[in-house]
Amino acid sequence: MKKNIDTMQQILDTGQNLIQERGYNAISYADVAEQIGIKKASIHYYFPAKQDLVQAILKRYRTEFMTGLNQIGRSSDSPEENLYRFFQYYRDPLVENAKLCLCSMMAAELVSFPMEIRDEINGFFRDNETWLENVIEQGREMGILDSQISSKEQSQIIMAFVQGAQLLARSSGDLQYYDMMVRNLLKNLNILTSP
C-alpha cells in the first residue's frame, strides 16, 4: 500500500513541477512517466485522464498554499510582516528552477481547460485575495497601512501585481527585479515601516 501512495505522490510532484516549468499543454503522461521511471499505464491507474491528474495537483497545491499563508498569518500580528512574507512566498518558486506559481502558470492557458479546472484556479486566486484583504484591513485598523481604495480592490491589485512580477522576473532571469518591484509596491502602499 505504501508503494502505491509513494508512486501517486511522485506522479503528483512530477506533474506539478513539469506544469510549473513548461505549462499544462506542454506536458504529457509520457513526460511524467519518463521522469519517474514508470510506465504510462501506471499513471492511468491513479489518474485515468490528464484532467484527473491536473485536478488532483491543483487541489493539493491550493490546500498546501493556503495552509502556508495561514501559518504566516498565525505566526505574526504584523500586517507589514505578513505582506512581506506573502511576496516571499511567491518568490520562492522563482529560486527553484525559475518556476512560477502553479496557478499563475495555468491561468495563461485557462481557456483550454474544462470548467472544473478553471474553477479550481479561480478559487485559488479568490482564496489569496481574501487572505490579503484581511491583512490589509488589519493594517488599516492598526493605522500602519493607508490606501485610498477598498481592501478588496487593493487585494486584487496586489494579486495582479505579484503574478506579473513573477512572470517578469522569470523572463528576465533576475530575482533582484522581483525584489525591487516588491519594495516599491510596499512603499506605494504607504506602509510606515517595512521588515
Rank of each mutant, 00 (worst) to 15 (best):
S28T: 12
E137K: 06
I117M: 08
F124M: 03
V54Q: 09
I27L: 13
E109Y: 06
Y29V: 12
F125C: 05
L186I: 10
A33S: 02
Y177T: 09
S42F: 00
K50S: 09
Y45V: 04
L69P: 01
Y24T: 15
G173Q: 02
Y61E: 12
N128M: 12
N128S: 09
I38Y: 09
G68L: 08
L83H: 06
L186S: 02
I136L: 14
F65W: 05
E137N: 14
Q9N: 15
Q154F: 14
Q88C: 09
A98F: 07
K39Y: 14
E80R: 02
K2R: 13
E21V: 10
F65V: 04
F47D: 13
I27H: 06
K3G: 00
D77K: 14
N190M: 03
S78W: 14
Q148Y: 13
I5K: 15
L18V: 08
Y90V: 00
G37W: 03
I136A: 02
S147T: 06
M1H: 08
P48I: 00
I117C: 05
V162C: 05
I38W: 01
K152W: 14
L69M: 03
I19E: 04
Y61D: 10
E137A: 11
G164R: 08
E21I: 09
N4L: 02
R22W: 06
K39F: 15
E153M: 09
I38T: 03
T63G: 01
L100E: 07
L110Y: 10
G73W: 04
Y84S: 07
M159V: 03
I38K: 11
A108F: 06
G23Q: 05
M105T: 09
T67E: 14
S78Q: 06
N188P: 07
N134M: 12
Y61Q: 09
N188L: 11
S172N: 06
N82A: 05
M159A: 01
G143W: 04
G123F: 00
V95M: 10
Q20M: 13
D174Y: 08
S104A: 13
I144Y: 04
R118M: 11
D77V: 10
G164M: 00
M8G: 03
L12F: 08
N190L: 02
G143Y: 12
G15Q: 01
N97M: 15
V54H: 03
N128L: 03
F124Q: 02
I149D: 11
D31R: 13
F65G: 00
R22K: 12
A160T: 11
T14D: 00
